[in-house]
Amino acid sequence: MTPSRPLDVRVKRVYDPAEPDDGSRVLIDRLWPRGVSKERARLDAWDKELAPSAELRRWYGHDPGRYEEFAGRYRRELAEPARAEELDRLRALARTGRLTLLTATRDLPHGHVRVLSAVLAEGPAG
């Protein structure tokens, strides 16, 4: 069996301009970002189901002091069987070329797409 190449997953704000090398552009937010038209977003998909739950998002409140706990809780949400098919679909997209995960979140280093990117790179669970 040949080793698979690492997935090329990038993280950007949906407010940043789309670029030719973005590859597949997927929005990972439950709510549509304010002030962004569907044309400007240039999305290939909008995956609300892989965004953190509303309860987790409210608890976190984008407080960097809660990031590590948030990341652990979000990983547990992503490990739920109902999300496996969506994760597999994103991994398949990333195997065909670059995948750019988009979010409206301002603080990308403490955002959910950073966690999701790491989960995708780790591969399917057990």
Rank of each mutant, 00 (worst) to 15 (best):
R89D: 14
T96R: 15
A18N: 09
D29K: 00
G72Y: 10
R34H: 05
R76H: 07
S53C: 13
R10Y: 05
G65W: 10
W32P: 04
W32E: 07
P124Q: 14
A92N: 08
D21A: 14
R25N: 07
E85L: 06
D22L: 07
G72Q: 14
R25T: 06
E39L: 03
T96F: 10
Y74P: 06
E55A: 15
A45H: 05
V119Q: 02
L50F: 13
G35Q: 04
V9M: 07
E122G: 14
V26F: 00
R89H: 15
L56D: 03
E55M: 13
D44W: 04
R57W: 04
L56C: 06
A45E: 06
L27E: 01
E69S: 13
A18R: 11
R95F: 08
G72A: 14
L120N: 04
V36D: 00
Y15I: 02
G111S: 15
R98W: 00
R57C: 04
R57H: 02
A54M: 11
W46S: 01
G72K: 13
A45D: 07
A125P: 02
P17V: 11
P33S: 11
D29W: 01
L56E: 05
A79P: 02
D29S: 02
A18P: 13
R98G: 02
R13A: 14
D16S: 12
A18H: 10
L120Q: 04
R76Y: 08
R114N: 07
P81M: 11
P3F: 05
F70D: 03
S37M: 02
R95E: 09
L120E: 04
D29R: 01
P3R: 11
E69Q: 15
G35D: 05
H62D: 08
F70Q: 04
G97C: 11
A79T: 06
P52M: 08
L31H: 15
H112L: 12
V11W: 00
R89P: 10
Y67G: 06
L116C: 04
D88G: 12
P17A: 15
Y60E: 09
D8S: 11
T105N: 15
E86Q: 14
L90K: 02
K38H: 09
A118S: 14
H110R: 12
P33L: 09
R76M: 11
E69L: 13
R57Y: 03
S117F: 02
T105L: 07
D21V: 11
G65V: 10
T103A: 06
V14Q: 00
L27R: 06
P33R: 10
E85Q: 11
T100V: 07
E86C: 12
R13H: 15
S4F: 07
D8A: 11
A84L: 11
R66Y: 04
G23T: 01
V11F: 01
V11I: 14
T103R: 03
L43I: 03
V113L: 07
L31N: 15
R5M: 07
R58F: 08
P124C: 09
A92I: 08
D63L: 13
D22C: 06
G126W: 09
V113Y: 05
H62N: 12
L99Q: 00
R42F: 08
R95A: 14
M1Q: 09
Y60N: 05
V14T: 03
